[in-house]
Simulated assay, not measured.
Amino acid sequence: MPKVSKKGQEMPASPIRKLVPFAEKAYQQNKTVYHLNIGQPDIKSPQIAMDAVAHHSLSVLAYTRSEGSQPYREKIAAYYQSKDIPAEANDIIVTTGGSEALLFAMGSIADIGDEIIIPEPFYANYNGFATASGVSIVPVISKIEENFALPPISEFEKLITDKTRAILICNPGNPTGYLYTPEEINQLAALVKKHDLFLIADEVYREFTYEGLKHYSILEAEGMENYGIIVDSVSKRYSMCGARIGCLVSKNKEVIDTALKFAQARLSPPTFAQIASEAALQTPQSYFDEVISEYEDRRNTLIKLLEAIPGLKVGHPKGAFYCIAELPIENSDHFAQWLLEDFDLDGETVMVAPAAGFYSTEGVGTNQIRIAYVLQKESLIKAVNILKVALEQYPG
């Protein structure tokens, strides 16, 4: 019998999606499941984006340019400039989600066996992208006791070898919600310039910052023209996860020219989704003001309730819409499955994302979960109460 590839065998399952069969079984048992496991916002997508697709004038659904349509890229550039991020249309390649932008970035800067240093916990699919690209992740552990702040630069520097090609961060962070300070970004910028590396920043949650704090992009740091690569997406910004439109941004012409060859190989990003995404750029600031206020209120409610659970420790997110909670248990994978298979409170239960899959260091994060506060506040309150009771009854 033919065998699948070693690479295929090594591809990690999503810690977010692998519990879906158990959730489906819970539905069949007529349980209500509160989904704290996945970053699918319940916020309505901008109507202007939906209308642009509904009222299109296309007679042929044709390819666009491999790098994305020129009008869309020009408008993306204007958006970045409004955020003090120096970018022109020619610095941008439109991709099929931020996921493809990450794959293009890895494929453009690293060969098989090369290394990328990443602070962990990190977005779980970085493991999958690295495996698909033949790249090794070298982790630097950030700690819940320090609210997942950037580890000391010395910890990064001692891991740099002749195989190191880049440092990758997510800012604000998924799964931690940590927002890097300008000082931390500038420290990383100085490090990559010193060692002639790239700094890749996944900035898809740029708009979601709280307590009056502002996001600081890697391309705002001085002298990053040849070193910085931004990965971005419309998915969370406009609650348009299904559009699957993102982009890769760099002032480094060689990086863009190389990434364009990957883009040409997959022909073009989806046309209707670009139409929606281009229209979404006209979304008024009032939309974001309301959304951010809503998320900040949910965050405050969630953290307060979690902190009241005996033995539970939780990070304090400053951005995005996730937090990491450390539970008084040994195995969050088992606990998450038990919640769906064997537990309910008056016919209701919760689905969480075990956090071990957000680390690449073996054995770390096994008693942690990621919570996405993308539910209405009333549902969050119910979900945390269910979690509290579950921890009291959990046999493990």
Rank of each mutant, 00 (worst) to 15 (best):
M106T: 00
E120A: 09
A105H: 04
P121G: 03
Y123L: 13
N127F: 12
I112W: 12
I116M: 03
I116L: 07
G107N: 15
G107A: 01
P119A: 13
A130I: 02
A130K: 10
A124R: 00
Y126C: 08
F129G: 05
G128N: 08
V135E: 06
A132I: 04
S136V: 03
S136C: 05
P119S: 12
V135L: 07
I118D: 01
D114C: 15
Y126M: 10
I118S: 03
G134L: 10
F122Y: 13
G128Y: 13
D114Y: 14
I118N: 00
N125Q: 15
Y126F: 15
F122R: 04
L103E: 11
E115R: 07
A132E: 15
P119Q: 07
S136W: 00
I112K: 15
P119E: 06
S108I: 08
G128R: 12
I109H: 00
L103Q: 06
S136T: 10
F129I: 07
M106H: 05
G107P: 03
A124S: 04
A124T: 01
N125H: 11
I116C: 14
N127Q: 13
D114Q: 12
Y126H: 03
I109G: 02
G134A: 08
V135G: 02
A105R: 06
T131K: 07
N127C: 06
F122W: 02
A124Y: 03
F104I: 01
A130W: 03
A105I: 03
A110S: 08
S108Y: 14
G113K: 12
G113A: 01
G107C: 13
N125K: 11
N127W: 10
D111I: 03
G134Y: 14
Y126S: 05
N125E: 10
M106C: 03
P119H: 10
S136G: 05
Y123K: 07
D111H: 10
V135C: 06
A130L: 12
A132R: 08
P121H: 09
S136P: 00
P121S: 11
I112D: 03
A124P: 00
P119M: 04
G113Q: 10
D114T: 12
A132Y: 06
D111K: 12
S108H: 01
Y123D: 04
S136D: 13
I118P: 01
T131M: 06
G107L: 12
A105N: 01
G113M: 07
S108L: 01
I116A: 11
A110T: 06
P119K: 02
A124I: 04
E115Q: 15
I109V: 07
G113I: 10
G107V: 15
G107M: 08
N125V: 14
S108N: 04
S136I: 02
I109N: 09
D111S: 15
T131G: 02
A132P: 04
M106E: 05
P121I: 09
G113H: 07
